[in-house]
């Protein structure tokens, strides 16, 4: 069972309190009716599902009930960081082959302001 840090509660809590909610940073376009079929397919159906670092949504459903985002390594199952919904993707620098140990605990909450990047669709 994983420990997940809720960025709203600012606490690590057991996985039992959370529910996974799919890929993060998929923004519903405000002009959704104007999307082409291809764009809608990309937005709604296609997911990247990479091996390694994933940006994903979680909900602290049995806690504060907030949705938030997380970066997790699918190889090690380790959380790199969690951050509030609406915040930009954290800048993780160059992707490394393997994440440093203990990163889930130590990288979080140190207030290193992540560089904002233009949101990909």
């Amino acid at each position: 069972m994983l420990l997940i840090r809720c960025p709203y509660c600012e606490e690590e809590r057991p996985e039992l309190e959370f529910r996974h909610a799919g890929e993060a940073h998929l923004v519903r376009p405000s002009n959704i009716t104007a999307m082409s079929d291809e764009d809608f397919e990309g937005y709604f159906f296609i997911r990247s599902n990479p091996k390694g670092l994933v940006y994903e949504r979680w909900r602290h459903i049995h806690g504060c009930a907030r949705f938030f985002n997380a970066v997790r390594d699918t190889v090690t199952d380790k959380f790199v960081t969690t951050y509030k919904a609406g915040e930009p993707k954290p800048d993780l620098g160059k992707p490394k082959a393997r994440l440093p140990r203990k990163s889930a605990r130590e990288n979080v909450g140190k207030g290193k302001p992540a560089k904002g990047r233009a949101e990909p669709r």
């Binding site: 909610a21 519903r28 909900r59 459903i61 949705f67 919904a85 609406g86």
Partner: peptide, 13 residues
């Protein structure tokens, strides 16, 4: 409820 909260919190905050 989850579906509504999802949209309220993340798409229509």
């Amino acid at each position: 409820m989850n579906h509504m909260e999802d949209y309220l919190q993340t798409e229509f905050p």
